[in-house]
């Protein structure tokens, strides 16, 4: 456990939404009952079937970034309600409850840190906060983080988990796809590497923008990755989808990603790749 422990009196603020508490946990993969502690010690991967439970932002950063090296960026960039959007609930209220449930300000945390000694800028999206949807803030934080990476000559790692657009921000949400792609294109022109890590689930506008343009694209096992959600496809074509459709292994088979990497090997793999890029001209 890591960076937030710098000050011992400071408790991690982030809460674990969607992660079952208690001593015993039922695995979503094999449906066996697992001892909670064993799951924690195993990076939240089922020891029986290797099912990868979702990680929250802190757990994800701790998994990849060296202890006590993470510095968070742009914590004070927060969501507005530019459309004054109201459906069954107000957008303002949805934001408020998402903040309360997760202890986070938005769906994306950005910053810099070391990965086995390699400097890197890292952005982590979490599905826990409004489905990891693309708010203006998500785009802006990625933009600024990548911009800093360009100035510092650091590589960029983005860990994706998203249901797609933040509908409550309308067209402004859609344009974050172009904005994030634009700044990553600039990173590329500066000959700085970008590693895209896909986790369960990565869909919609995130798949159709930054998640899909990594110099290297890595996925966690069995992560759901696609543009259109399975239900919409089934409704459109009127047939059941094949087993394993839109899973990481399916994308690997179809040439859409470079590798599927188990959680326990993720940090090692990212560091290994970064080491190759150190020798670039």
């Amino acid at each position: 456990m890591a960076w937030f422990k710098k000050k011992t009196d400071e408790k991690p603020k982030e809460k674990k939404k969607g992660i079952p508490k208690g001593l015993w946990v039922k695995c979503n993969g094999c449906e066996e009952i697992i001892y909670g502690k064993e799951l924690e010690l195993n990076n939240r991967v089922c020891p029986l079937c290797q099912y990868h439970f979702k990680l929250n932002v802190l757990e994800r950063i701790n998994l990849i970034i060296d202890e006590n090296t993470f510095i968070e960026y742009d914590k004070n960039v927060k969501s507005d309600d530019p459309l004054s959007f109201k459906d069954l609930k107000r957008y303002e209220d949805r934001l408020k409850s998402a903040k309360e449930e997760t202890g986070l300000e938005e769906a994306l945390v950005s910053g810099e840190g070391k990965i086995n000694g390699h400097d890197a800028v890292i952005c982590v999206l979490t599905f826990d906060f409004m489905g990891g949807s693309m708010a203006s803030v998500v785009g802006e934080k990625i933009f600024r983080a990548v911009d800093r990476a360009i100035k510092k000559r650091f590589p960029v790692i983005i860990v994706s988990a998203s249901g797609g657009a933040r509908m409550q921000e309308g067209i402004l949400s859609l344009m974050q796809m172009a904005k994030t792609t634009a700044v990553l294109a600039k990173l590329g022109k500066e000959k700085l590497p970008y590693i895209s890590i896909l986790t369960d689930p990565t869909t919609g506008g995130v798949t159709a923008s930054f998640a899909s343009i990594g110099d290297v694209i890595i996925s966690e096992p069995k992560a759901l990755i696609g543009f259109t959600g399975a239900r919409v496809i089934e409704q459109t074509i009127g047939q059941k989808l094949p087993e394993g459709f839109q899973r990481a292994e399916f994308l690997l088979e179809h040439g859409m990603i470079d590798m599927v990497v188990e959680r326990k090997d993720m940090k090692k793999t990212v560091a290994q790749i970064l080491d190759f890029f150190k020798n670039r001209q």
Binding site: M177, T181, T207, A208, S209, F210, A211, S212, I213, G226, F227, T228, V232, I233, T236, I237, L241, P242, F245, Q246, F250, H254, G255, M256
Partner: peptide, 15 residues
């Protein structure tokens, strides 16, 4: 939204 479109990388094509 279709099987072939997903197999051949609809997201990648747009990005």
């Amino acid at each position: 939204p279709g099987i072939g479109a997903e197999e051949r990388g609809q997201g990648e094509a747009i990005a």
